[in-house]
């Protein structure tokens, strides 16, 4: 059987909110390592990889590896029924085609269980090569979300350019153009407010803003976001999940032919 229990159930709610608009159906892989998922959006332009390590849960039992196919919109509907302070338990018995979500209020005076049908999903796993990135930007996640949102009102694509001056986000459209430059700023009171730019090589890449905006749904999960870029490679936008793992979004670039 498979069973996990997460006292901070709101994390799981936030994780689902972060991926449900990007991916319709996905296989969750349960193993002794943890609860993970890899899925592409329907047009295969973006990929999301989630890992919640088994050690991060208050209870985690996985007798043998299990793949659970779920419709993420339906899973999100069920998790929305959990209170923000609720403890969430996910259970699946071997050989059944359902998964059970159990929600316990902190004072244990309300216990709900929701059963959801599992699906058979044909999904292909991609091998993500380890890469040394030419530029890595760490910045406040709310700032990144703001930039993506603001540039969306100007154009459909963002050009991200890292130089020793800093990182420049540019968009252009019918009404005009916008450039937002963020400089390294490590001398802040709180580390979560810092912007750190590690650059081996200057790099400039172009991306569809629609996907970037979708990634920023993960903003409530982490104060900081890490953006890793190399020429002619998908960008990685990573949000840590409080001491448990991460959500990484990979987005293929637009390349001039």
């Amino acid at each position: 059987m498979f069973e996990l229990r997460l006292v901070q159930g709101s994390l799981l709610k936030k994780v689902l909110e972060s991926i449900k608009d990007l991916v319709n159906d996905a296989n969750f892989d349960c193993s002794s390592t943890g609860f993970s998922l890899q899925a592409m959006d329907s047009s295969h332009v973006a990929l999301v990889a989630l890992l919640l390590r088994s050690e991060g849960f208050e209870h985690y039992r996985c007798d043998r590896n299990l793949t659970m196919g779920m419709n993420l919109a339906n899973m999100a509907k069920m998790l929305k029924c959990a209170g923000n302070d609720d403890i969430i338990t996910i259970k699946a018995d071997d050989g059944t085609d359902t998964v059970t979500f159990m929600f316990e209020s902190p004072s244990q005076d309300k216990i709900s269980d929701f059963e959801m049908k599992l699906m058979d999903i044909d999904s292909e796993h991609l091998g993500i090569p380890e890469a040394e990135y030419e530029a890595i930007i760490r910045m406040p996640s709310a700032e990144f979300a703001r930039i993506c949102r603001d540039l969306s009102s100007i154009g459909d694509t963002v050009v991200i350019s890292v130089t020793k001056e800093g990182v420049r986000f540019s968009a252009r459209g019918d009404i005009g153009a916008a450039n937002i430059v963020c400089r390294q700023n490590a001398t802040v009171d709180k580390p979560e407010d810092a912007t750190i730019i590690e650059m081996q090589e200057p790099v400039t890449l172009t991306f569809a803003l629609r996907y970037m905006n979708s990634f920023t749904k993960a903003t409530p999960l982490a104060e900081q976001v890490t953006i890793s870029m190399s020429s002619d490679l998908p960008v990685v936008v990573e949000y840590k999940v409080a001491g448990m793992g991460y959500i990484r979004y990979y987005l293929a670039p637009k390349i001039e032919e």
């Binding site: 295969h44 796993h125 991609l126 998908p234 032919e257």
Partner: peptide, 14 residues
Amino acid sequence: GPKQYTITKFFQKL
């Protein structure tokens, strides 16, 4: 304009 590539162009299927 620039062409939108897919992820499968960069990452191989396992």
